[in-house]
Computed example of a mutant assay.
Amino acid sequence: RLVADSRNVALRHTAGLSTPQQVQMVLFALYGLMDEEETYKKAVKRILRRRYRALYRGIGLEPVENPNYTYYYTLLDMEELSERLYGKEFSRWFMENFPPEEFIIRLAKEAGVVLLPGKGFEVPHPSARVSLANLREVDYLTIGRTIRKILDEYYEEFRKKGDPNAQS
């Protein structure tokens, strides 16, 4: 740690936490020890679960609940979502015809929200990771509605390609 505290910032910038970060961590830990009823922790969990449910309400699907989820992040697997909404045939078409990052880029343009790739960087997987810790509940509802709108548009394109006489 002494070496990392040297003034050679460019060489040691990732070696540790800054003093303000260390103080903040101490305060969080102290509060965690003082809150014996876990009031804060339970309140945060309720908020995160509401945001998770709002996201899926916007998509128009029942969320998958799991007592082991932290709900701090959720992974939107586009292959799974497209299949749950419109079936295997559409999901297969969707996966074959669009690069994994296209959906994330389109969502950023249309909803003003930037999501990270779900499986990490440089991994071509059709998923997005949503942080449920940053926005208001209504914002997650809006994100969900935009996701559904985009998938609905892809589905209309799928229907038109499958049936040239299909009406919107």
Rank of each mutant, 00 (worst) to 15 (best):
P67E: 00
R136A: 08
R148M: 06
P100I: 00
E37K: 07
P67Q: 04
G162D: 08
L11R: 09
G112Q: 04
M34T: 14
R92T: 14
L30P: 06
T14D: 05
E62Y: 06
F28Y: 12
T74W: 05
R106E: 13
E79Q: 03
A43T: 15
S18T: 04
V23H: 02
E153T: 06
D35S: 08
L151E: 01
Y73W: 10
E153K: 06
R46D: 14
E80N: 02
I105L: 05
L141V: 05
V3E: 11
Y69V: 05
Y86W: 08
V3H: 05
N165V: 15
R84K: 13
E110Y: 10
E36W: 05
E89D: 14
L76C: 00
L27T: 09
K109T: 03
D77N: 02
E137C: 10
L81E: 04
K88E: 13
L141S: 07
R136D: 12
E102N: 01
L75Q: 04
L48G: 03
G60H: 05
N97R: 13
L135E: 00
K119T: 02
R12M: 11
V44I: 15
K119S: 08
S82G: 02
L27G: 04
V44H: 07
G16Y: 05
G32F: 05
V113W: 01
A43P: 08
R12E: 11
G16V: 03
E36Y: 06
T14N: 05
D152G: 05
G120Y: 08
P20H: 00
V138D: 10
V138H: 06
L17E: 03
W93F: 13
I150M: 07
Y155I: 00
E83T: 14
R7P: 09
L116M: 10
W93I: 13
Y40N: 14
Q167G: 10
P63Y: 07
L33R: 14
Y40A: 10
V138W: 04
R145F: 07
G32V: 02
L2R: 09
R106Y: 02
A166N: 12
Y52C: 11
R145V: 09
E137S: 07
A108R: 01
E156M: 14
P100V: 04
E156C: 10
R53C: 14
L151G: 03
L116K: 10
P164N: 12
W93S: 12
P164F: 15
R51V: 03
L151P: 02
V44Y: 07
G87L: 05
I150D: 04
R159D: 09
E96P: 09
Y72E: 12
T146Y: 07
T74R: 06
L85K: 01
N68Q: 03
P126I: 01
V114T: 00
R49M: 13
Y31T: 15
P124V: 01
R7N: 10
L2A: 11
D152F: 08
R136V: 09
T142I: 13
D77G: 00
D163E: 11
R148N: 06
L115A: 02
K160T: 13
G58R: 10
R129D: 06
D35P: 12
A128I: 01
